[in-house]
Design a protein around this nucleic acid. Structure first.
Lengths: 224, 224
DNA sequence: GTTATTTTGAACTCATACGTTCAAATTGGC
DNA sequence: GCCAATTTGAACGTATGAGTTCAAAATAAC
């Protein structure tokens, strides 16, 4: 089943499989699940229709595979971006903006939007697929960011009660405007608007969570 | 065409039309556009199929009407909620939480999620519909909230540079966790989780935008 | 009651598209 | 060169569903 298994088994032609997946992600994201045409996918992949059914039992299996792969790619990108956030707190605003940019660019990518739109579209029909994508994507990414923020808080650069909450709020603040800006990914976003949105989000995040400059309290409870 | 026109023209049976729309919103939101079946809508509305085509020229027209009506209802609810935000700044945190609750409940409603999922699903295919819904829904609602926040800022209860940005960030902070919490509207949200999310959002919003207690920025001294 | 309009049921047309079948061609391993 | 697995093309069966047609029935206006 897995890419690796097939590659080792020898006989299966791995390139056909990936060609089908590449074509499928394009067609699904342009047309949506129901409107996507298997013949179109086969033709775009340069493959005969029975070959598609040879690799993927039916349309739903193909769709699920596409969504899983897409989620894995996006997650890897976002986690890599978060991992570059330094712990030392130097130029915190600049670093948060940089990471915020990487994050939104991942979501703004063709594939990021496609994944999100398809998830929304099919969540009601395939709730387990939604759960799986969240488990593979959103949750790990959020955990990584929460860990970085917790590190910054421990070193006194941020004042954070709950790192997971703060991580979610960072994402909401920085990326919350993206759907409106890009019309759900159907229109290009001007780099200036994007930079403004990220900057505003980071500024508000820091207004809420930046540790007071004078005090270098590692942990200062605000109220009981 | 409009409800009112039809009601005055007399001959058209207005109740059939609304019954069709009610049925259509249910079927569309459960099945999605492509999977939605006109026969099912007609049957659920207690109406013959040609009657559907008598009121709405084709499936897409019916869909667009459903989306517009749904957007109008949601917008009216949210704007009504925002309008109850008092200007005087008394119990600001409590009031923001109350309004935040009204806002997320609107989005959490069956219809709110249906609208959002269908928008995401069909945005690529019907970009103009997306624009129309945003123009009727998101933008007016955001403007009303921005106006309220600006009022609070003028009276010295908030410290806000750009009310529109702050309004968008309020929505992002308070509602940003909803998709994950409710699995895009496919699962019920526990009232406790919901209250936590709203409280966390409002707390962060106030940490970023609350006017410092000592300084009386503009007009009104803080009464305490 | 008369009349114009709407509604209804049922059957029909037509297009789309999933998934299958199968014999022939191709491929890769040995 | 031989064999086993895969691929291919093209046709097919089948299902689904949008939108139409039409004559009969129901309805509202006058």
């Amino acid at each position: 089943m897995t890419t690796i298994e097939r590659a080792r088994s020898g006989r299966g032609r791995i390139d056909k499989r990936t060609a089908i997946l590449d074509a499928a992600v394009k067609v699904f994201s342009q047309e949506g699940y129901a409107q996507a045409n298997i013949d179109a996918i086969a033709s775009l992949a340069g493959v005969a229709k029975p070959t598609v059914y040879n690799h993927f039992h039916d349309k739903e299996t193909l769709f699920r595979t596409v969504m899983r792969d897409s989620a894995d790619r996006s997650t890897a990108r976002i986690i890599a971006a978060f991992a570059t956030l330094p712990d030392d707190g130097a130029d915190l605003a600049g670093e948060l903006e940089r990471v915020g940019h990487l994050m939104v660019e991942c979501q703004l990518s063709e594939e990021g939007w496609a994944l999100q739109r398809l998830l929304y579209a099919e969540a009601a029909r395939l709730p387990d697929l939604y759960d799986e994508v969240v488990a593979r994507g959103g949750i790990p990414a959020l955990n990584v960011l929460a860990g970085r923020l917790a590190g910054l808080a421990n070193r006194g650069h941020l004042e954070i009660d709950d790192p997971a909450v703060a991580a979610g709020q960072f994402m909401a603040l920085v990326a919350g405007n993206l759907p409106a800006l890009s019309a759900l990914g159907t229109r290009p976003v001007s780099p200036d608007d994007l930079a403004d949105a990220v900057r505003d989000g980071v500024r508000t995040f820091l207004r809420a969570f930046a540790a007071p400059a004078r005090r270098r309290s590692s942990r200062r409870p605000r109220e009981s």
